[in-house]
């Protein structure tokens, strides 16, 4: 992706600069392509037989999409390192929460299913 910083040129001599939008459309097509792939995988791989593989691919592609939205559209890729870490470090803790509670959920389900048998 070309640097969006190039769009930062302000008005020159009262004239409005030409729009620099090619990078925006490139990100858009990447996002559409990833969504299309996600959709194809949802129907190509049957959940009954490929549950883990299917879910891993879908979650991986979602994180890739998030990377493009946050990095390019929200401009985080071009901010200072401090700001990037300030956002990324707390967010990654959510993965821990998710894994811990999903595991907990499976355990509760198992326990309740076998409680009276």
């Amino acid at each position: 992706m070309s640097s969006p910083a190039a769009t930062d040129h302000a008005t020159l001599n009262g004239e409005i600069a030409k729009p620099n939008t090619s990078w925006i459309w490139r990100v858009f097509f990447v996002l559409v392509a990833i969504t299309a792939v996600e959709f194809a995988i949802t129907f190509a791989l049957e959940a009954q037989h490929f549950r883990t593989l299917r879910n891993s691919i879908l979650i991986g592609l979602t994180i890739l999409k998030a990377f493009f939205i946050v990095g390019e559209f929200m401009h985080l890729k071009h901010e200072t390192k401090g700001l990037i870490w300030m956002i990324l470090v707390p967010s990654t803790l959510l993965i821990w929460l998710l894994v811990a509670l999903v595991t907990e959920g499976s355990f509760i389900g198992e326990t309740m299913a076998h409680m009276f048998s």
Binding site: L98, V102, G105
Partner: peptide, 26 residues
């Protein structure tokens, strides 16, 4: 970031409750 925590909590709850329930295996 704080809003991401709210939605993260919602989706984590979804994951936990979904895993608590049985899956259709047929």
């Amino acid at each position: 970031l704080s809003d991401a925590f709210s939605f993260g909590a919602f989706l984590t709850t979804y994951g936990m409750i979904r895993h608590k329930h049985a899956v259709f295996t047929g």
